[in-house]
Structures are given as C-alpha cells and as structure tokens.
Design a protein around this nucleic acid. Structure first.
Lengths: 191, 191
DNA sequence: CTCTAATCTTGACAGTGTCAAGTTTGGAGT
DNA sequence: ACTCCAAACTTGACACTGTCAAGATTAGAG
C-alpha cells in the first residue's frame, strides 16, 4: 500500500517532508519537487493534493500553528491563577519562537496570517493563540475584580499581545543581541 | 553615458528598480533578470555590482531602512519633551509599516537583520531605529528624574521596543482585524 | 595614444512551478 | 466476478529563475 503506484497518504507525507526540509534547510530550500522526491513520487504528483505550492505552504503553516497552540495550552495547564497563566503563556510564546526562529518568519512573514486559518472576515480574531490570550485575560479581569470598558479591554488585550509578540520578534533577530535568555524569558519582560 | 555600452550608474538603478518592483508586486516578484531588464541591461549585468541576489536584496533593505529611520527622525523633530518624542516615534514606527506592510516582511522576515546593517558582533545594538529609541529613552529618564539600574533600563528599553514593534507586526497582519486605525495609532496603545 | 580593468553581453546549465496528456489502480455498482 | 470510472500518479514539456564562463566593449589612468 505504501510502495505501489498509489502512495496511500501522500498529502500528509508531503506536509511532513515539507516541515522536515524547512527545519533542516530553511523555507527557501523547500520546493515542490524536493518534497515530492522525499516521498518517492514524481515531480507533479503533489498537484493531485495541492492546487499550488502556496496551498502546501498553507497546510504546513496550519500544522506548525497547531503545534504552537499546543505549547501554549500546555503552559497554561499547570497555572494556579489567571495571572500565572498569562505569564506562563507569554513565556511559552517567546520560548517557542526562540527555539524555532525559522518558524516566526514562516508563520508571520510573507503571506497574510488569515490564509492558513480559514478566517472569515466577519469573525475577526479566531487566531487560536489570540483566543487563548483573550480567554485568560478575561479570567484575569474577573479574578482581580477589574472593570474595564470593552474598548479599554481591547486596547489592553492588543498591548499584551503586542509586547509578547514583539519580544518573540526581537528574540528572532539574530543580529540584535540583547543578552537575554529568550529560552527562559525573564518574567519582568512580560509583566 | 546613459545609453551606451556602459550604463553609468547601474548599481543604484538596480536598487531603485528593485524597490519599485517590490512596491508594485511584492518581494516574490523581484528577480535579478527583471531588475536588469528594467534597467535595459542584459540578464547577467547585475553580477558586476552584486555578488548575489542576496547582496542586491541587502542593498535594498539598507535603502528602505534609511527611509524608515528618516521618518522616525522627522517625527521626533517637533517634539517638545522626550516623552512626547517617544510617543511620536512609536506612532511613526507603527504608521510606517501600516502604510507599507510589505516592508515589514521584507525588513524583518527571512534574513537576519544584521546582514544589511554590517553589524559587528561586539557592538550589538547599532540598529539605527533602536539607537534613536535609546537616545530618547535616556533623555526621558533624565527629564523625569528617574533612576534605574542599567539592567533595569535594558529591560524597560526592550519592553518599549517590543510593544511598538509588536503593534507594527500586528498592524501588518491583514487577517487579524483589530478595528484600530494603525495609520494614526491610538496614543493609549503605546503609553 | 595605449592598454588595463571594470563593465556589460552572450550562451549555457541546473533547478524551479505549472500544465497537458497519458497510465495505473482502488473500489463502487452491476 | 466483472466492468469501468474517477482519483492518484507519471512523463514530458514550457517558461522562468540564479549563476557561471567566455568573450566584447569602453572609460580612464598612465
């Protein structure tokens, strides 16, 4: 079933091969033909499963985003309070991209973030990591008895996201050495 | 001089043509051959001025970064206090990338930021926008009579940069609609 | 006025994404 | 059990890419 004319599970195999190539040699190095070759399949075989190179790329992004979201959820699991959860999430966020800087460019560079998430334009912010942030931020407001207008909440939410996302971005700039250990980010950076 | 065998100023012409192509069709669309064609020059002519495609890309990044730095410096000019300067800078930072989202990916995606800035590894943070930030941050500390340890300063500095840079990054994510006007960023987002 | 070194052209090569046309085959419907 | 179709895959081709080698041109130093 795996070595006949039909591969059996080429779609997933191409995604896995793609991730492996990106991990080993960067996004630049990924070509449809190489991914196909890695699956022992002819150069045009991928077109049975993906309309485009972009469509393969989006599938890979989806896969990486899932892994990222899992990391964030794991970080939140052992948190006692919402405040602890938010900090743990921030550190996990930065740590994830610090450990895999290529993924940062891959996920946020180039294309719109919307593509690999099937966002509909009405439902604006269904980016899973952002959903998680929103959830624990609201919990944090409740636990600490803080009352904010929804507009003010929105601002605080974006600010929180921005600082963590900005940290991750900076951590991924190899040229800008900041003497911080981004793998185990200083708590003071986030709070 | 401009239409003979020798172009006269091909190097700069290639940079300009490259920027134009990126502006009109995105980074993907830029090829050495197209840039060469835009300068009415054969496909291998660029190799007299750039060793690589990457070397052209770096030259273009340098050019864009210069424009970006100019914007920040302009924003700071009319500020009365350091506090005002910092806010104006933050807004200009976000506004610049909000107006040219392609540049964000172009400058910060893919390659190390270090390459197009000729950073030496000892002198870590000579990224011009960051230098500007540091300058006005120190002025802010002095004007307000705030005393911080240099370590604490470093943390605050990175946090400030991160929040603004994160905002810019978020503003460039077309999929994540946040209902803010990033062109004229809300002051509350930065402070 | 000469000649060298920088600049540019021409031609070639391997690698890329993509399409069109043909081949194989699992599996549904009889 | 047999047929046959649609999905999966192959083969071959095309235009385009970055890069290099070899040659042509020419500006400008001497």
């Amino acid at each position: 079933m795996a070595d006949g004319y039909h591969h059996g599970n080429l779609r997933q195999a191409l995604i896995d091969a793609g991730i492996k190539i990106i991990n080993e040699s960067g996004e630049e190095a990924l070509s449809l033909r190489k991914a196909a070759a890695a699956c022992n399949v002819s150069h045009a075989a991928p077109y049975a499963h993906f309309k485009d190179k972009d469509e393969l790329l989006e599938a890979i992004k989806k896969s990486v985003t899932d892994k990222f979201t899992e990391d964030l959820e794991d970080a939140v699991k052992n948190a006692g309070s919402a405040d602890e959860a938010l900090i743990a999430m921030g550190r996990a966020y930065i740590s994830f991209f610090s450990r895999n800087p290529d993924y940062f460019m891959f996920l946020f560079g180039k294309q719109n973030i919307s593509a690999h998430l099937q966002m509909n334009k009405e439902d604006k912010e269904d980016y899973p990591p952002f959903l998680l942030l929103r959830k624990y931020y609201k919990k944090h407001l409740k636990e600490n008895g803080i009352k904010l207008s929804s507009e003010e909440q929105e601002i605080e939410l974006i600010k929180t996201w921005a600082i963590v996302h900005g940290m991750a971005s900076i951590a991924c700039m190899k040229g800008v050495n900041t003497s911080f250990d981004w793998n185990e980010p200083d708590v003071r950076l986030i709070t």
